[in-house]
Write a protein that binds this DNA or RNA. Structure first.
Length: 885
RNA sequence: GGGCGGGUAGCUCAGCCGGGAGAGCGCCACGCUUACACCGUGGAUGUCACAGGUUCGAUCCCUGUCCCGCCUACCA
């Protein structure tokens, strides 16, 4: 059996395409509806159909793929359910902009034609991101790909709407909502972003109707005064006690409005009196309901003053502000203008200032749903990781307000409500009704509005599995095992899935929720187009390869921390891929004549036993890291093993076996170890670096080994545990390092091979060192090594101390002794510091009386060791001085 | 206003249950030794934000202060 020879360097682009196609052809991503294996499922956070892969997606999907590949290798029947979101406002905007170039608006086309146009757009340009996810290596079950607007999911949406409606959980009414004058639709509270704005606070005088003076109110939005229907003061405010119940004249509108008392009003803000505009402010609206005030909307959907705004009719809201202020000033009503910073709500999508407006909308009564969703997390039916997010989740759920689900858009799930033209009957139905069930009239009008995109997203964990049909998929994969998403959509999406899952399926949508942080640039700033600090994932993949890119993301994903990314960091992990590649070249060369099927005894060589023990620890660490979503720990463990144990030591230690005079038997035994360790190493790495590991796996193995991705994930092998080998190896390694240190510090050129003497503390360690003589000779570049127990220090040597072991390097003819003197003095200084600390501690009576016995013992051992080391070094230094004199 | 997270080596960060401060990158020195210069070997580097407290002992626990992020909120 011959292994393939590897090219000089790994070629990511080539391997990525080749192996991804191979996996697809073999349907390795496909999950079975029926299987004897336990199920493990994740639904993808559906990207917008208009979306392009950005760093957030890259991180999110890399983490999902790591877990999915890990679980798949562990033998689970693994489903990663992919799909996309129809993104109501975003998609409608895109298509409207396209129309605009043709000089058309959606109204020119009409609703049906416009929607057809959106679908056309979707077929042509939508879903670019799906192919980008494939370049990331995502092992989604693409055969199951879903779209929130497809037939099945639309059916689910209707079903849930009707159910909620019939159970009294959905209602319609005139309420004040967040209105975007540009998108021309209501949006939910969550979709409003508050931005601080340096503006003004204007103080305006409202005269009493009876001519008895006036009352001053403050406002940041003077134009809304046109719709004022009251002035409010706090009931406890003695200054205004007599004024409550009186009327003031609303300036410019010349209208009588009452002074009312409500404890919402803060007494010590401004004058303690506030103007009330129920049509333009949510708080004022609430107050109007408490006091049965008149509610006047002075603006239309575009933010233009309407007929209720008197002579300002037709003016846009900002223009009206200017004019109102000018007129107030002219009329002597403007008392003062102060600089004032306050928060202005903006539309998350287009950044237009939100206009709170009263309109007829659909709402979900959310409290009962939230109650269940809270309970599920309290009872640990769903675990939120990291746990700190639970508090945020609870806080939001406890203070939740009814969800406005209607949107005045065309692209989306149209609300399944019809109105009879004749009898005004309201029909709410899953199937489009043909006639009015009351009067039989066939002229029915469907509600014009569509549902919030998040409504359909909230059903994603079960709608994608076929609900409302009772499918096998649903039975097998719901509740899903895990959701991985960014914390920024905890409320938007996670919370709503929790509520809907519990309401519809009577069970949580997922067992675990892992929330990851944001990807920022290396300075910690949020990436944005305007800042120009965007790092494009695809260009990173092109430059450094998918494997390096993915590994970087995993390595920087520590819980509760943002990921700070820069191309240099990705490059660093490209070097790691290169290191793996080169180590593999050597490995494959050394295995060229290895026959896996031939019976070979396990190697009893120290390095072989040691590397297997270390590998065992690495298996445990990687597994634990992934199981607990400590991606940084898992990736660090495999990185450290490969580079600093396998490459730095094991490959070097085993070179003599392959190049030297080892017996055929030893050679084969070492090959067996090398093959095993290398295989397991690739498997551990595979979830992080799918492509290079597959390439190497295929080069290593016989053709009947189908793919690393369906191989069994390594488990700790008790037979590999070997504390003794670890101890012994550690001893040899410190001796080698110590000699190298002397070489390095003394500037001994590599061409000079040293003769070294070692004094062992006792027979046992003497034997270990003597057994490991060849390793030391090779790795420390020595000509000879003599080992004796209790050797007396010779003259003219450099000295190294490791516990009871002394290392003597004769300096004659190699270097002068001044260097060694300096080196010893440095060492001595270090030891004395430790020595002082330690003896001080032990001299402390309280310490000896109160500290744990094992701690005291440890401290005593340390003191003794330091003492000995100190003596040895001091002695060595004295001898050197004698010579140099 | 409320809440959360963070301030540890030049940079980015790890340090679980208190008991001698770590990694990666960067830096310095030497080296093209037959896998790898995308490398090897060695080295340097810290008032663990500040001030108190608890303790025999604090980077870790408690209190306060100062910075920096983020989330959330109806003070006009």
């Amino acid at each position: 059996m011959s292994k393939k020879e590897l090219s000089k360097a790994f070629e990511p682009a080539h391997a990525e395409e080749r192996w991804y196609d191979y996996w697809l052809e073999n349907k390795y991503f496909h999950a079975k509806d029926n299987s004897d294996s336990p199920a493990f499922s994740i639904v993808i956070p559906p990207p917008n159909v208009t979306g392009m892969l950005h760093m957030g997606h890259a991180l999110n999907n890399t983490l999902q793929d790591i877990i999915i590949r890990f679980k798949r290798m562990q033998g689970y029947n693994t489903l990663w359910m992919p799909g996309m979101d129809h993104a109501g406002i975003a998609t409608q905007n895109v298509v409207e902009q396209e129309l605009m170039k043709e000089g058309l608006s959606r109204h020119d086309l009409g609703r049906a034609k416009f929607i057809a146009r959106v679908w056309e757009w979707k077929e042509k340009y939508g879903g670019v991101i799906i192919n980008q996810l494939k370049r990331l290596g995502c092992s989604c079950d693409w055969e199951r790909e879903r779209f929130t607007m497809d037939e099945g999911l639309s059916k689910a949406v209707r079903e849930v709407f009707v159910r909620l409606y019939n159970e009294g959980m959905i209602y319609q009414g005139d309420y004040i909502v967040n209105w975007c004058p540009r998108c021309h639709t209501a949006i939910s509270d969550l979709e409003v972003e508050f931005k601080q704005d340096a503006s003004f606070l204007w103080n305006i005088r409202y005269p009493f109707a009876d001519g008895s003076g006036d009352i001053v109110v403050a406002t940041t939005r003077p134009e809304t005064m046109l719709g004022d229907t009251a002035v409010a003061v706090n009931p406890l405010d003695f200054r205004y006690r007599d004024q409550v119940g009186k009327f003031v004249i609303l300036p410019l509108m010349n209208k009588k409005i009452p002074v009312i008392a409500d404890d919402y009003v803060t007494m010590d803000f401004g004058s303690g009196a506030v103007k009330i505009t129920p049509g333009s402010d949510p708080n004022d609206f609430a107050m109007a309901q408490r006091h049965q005030l008149e509610i006047i909307s002075i603006m239309d959907g575009h933010g233009i003053i309407n007929e209720y705004g008197g002579k300002y009719k037709g003016q846009d809201r900002y223009e009206a502000r200017k004019n109102v202020l000018a007129d107030l000033e002219k009329g002597g009503y403007l008392v003062s203008t102060e600089h004032y910073a306050h928060n202005v709500g903006q539309c998350y999508r287009c950044k237009t200032d939100i206009e709170p407006m009263v309109s007829k909308q659909w709402f979900i009564k959310i409290k009962p749903l939230a109650k269940q969703a809270i309970a599920a997390v309290v009872k640990d039916k769903t675990k939120i990781i990291p746990k700190t997010w639970e508090a945020t989740y609870f806080d939001w759920m406890n203070n939740i307000r009814d969800w406005c689900i209607s949107r005045q858009l065309w692209w989306g799930h149209r609300i399944p409500v019809w109105y009879c033209d004749d009898c005004d009957k309201v029909i709410v139905a899953i199937e489009d009704p043909k006639e009015c069930p009351d009067c039989g009239n066939t002229s029915l009008m469907q509600d014009e509005d569509v549902l919030d995109t998040w409504f359909s997203s909230a059903l994603w964990p079960f709608s994608t599995l076929g609900w409302p049909d009772k499918t096998e998929s649903l039975k097998t994969f719901y509740p899903t095992s895990l959701l991985i998403t960014g914390f920024d959509i905890l409320f938007f999406w996670v919370a709503r899935m929790m509520m809907m899952g519990l309401y519809v399926m009577k069970d949580v949508p997922f067992r675990h929720v892992y929330l990851h942080a944001l990807v920022r640039d290396e300075k910690g700033e949020k990436m944005s187009k305007s800042k120009g600090n965007i790092i494009d994932p695809l260009s990173m993949i092109d430059q450094y390869g998918t494997d390096a890119f993915r590994f970087t993301l995993a390595a920087y994903t520590a819980q509760g921390r943002d990921v700070r990314l820069s191309p240099e960091r990705i490059e660093g992990y490209k070097f790691f891929v290169n290191k793996i590649w080169n180590a593999s070249k050597l490995t494959l060369t050394n295995l060229a004549d290895f026959d896996e099927s031939a019976p070979v005894n396990d190697s009893d060589s120290l390095p072989d036993k040691w590397i297997k023990a270390k590998l065992n620890e690495t298996i445990a660490e990687v597994t634990r890291g992934l199981e607990e979503y400590h991606f940084n720990d898992a990736s660090a463990a495999i990185y450290h093993f490969i580079w600093h144990e396998f490459c730095d030591w094991y490959l070097e230690l085993s070179k003599p076996v392959f190049y030297g005079k080892a017996s055929q038997e030893q050679r084969q035994a070492t090959q067996k170890t090398l093959h095993e360790v290398f295989t397991v190493m690739l498997q551990l790495l595979h979830p992080f670096m799918p492509f290079v590991t597959e390439e190497l796996w295929q080069s290593l193995n016989d053709s009947d080994e189908r793919s690393i991705m369906v191989s069994k994930f390594p488990v700790v092998n008790p037979a590999w545990e070997d504390k003794v080998a670890e101890k012994k190896m550690e001893m040899l390694m410190t001796i080698i390092t110590s000699i190298r240190n002397i070489r390095g510090e003394m500037r001994v050129p590599p061409s000079i091979k040293l003769k070294v003497m070692v004094s062992a503390g006792d027979d046992e360690s003497g034997k270990i060192i003597d057994d490991g003589k060849d390793y030391i000779l090779n790795l420390a570049n020595l000509e000879s090594l003599t080992v004796e127990v209790g050797l007396v220090e010779p003259k003219g040597v450099a000295t190294g101390v490791i516990g009871a072991t002394r290392i003597f390097v004769p300096l004659a003819g190699v270097v002068d002794i001044t260097g060694e003197k300096a080196r010893l003095e440095k060492e001595l200084a270090k030891v004395s510091k430790d020595l002082e600390q330690s003896s001080k501690k032990l001299a402390n009576r309280d310490f000896c009386a109160k500290a744990a016995p094992e701690i005291i013992q440890k401290e005593e051992d340390k003191l003794k060791e330091c003492q000995e080391k100190f003596n040895t070094l001091e002695n060595a230094l004295k001898k050197l001085k004698e010579i140099s004199r």
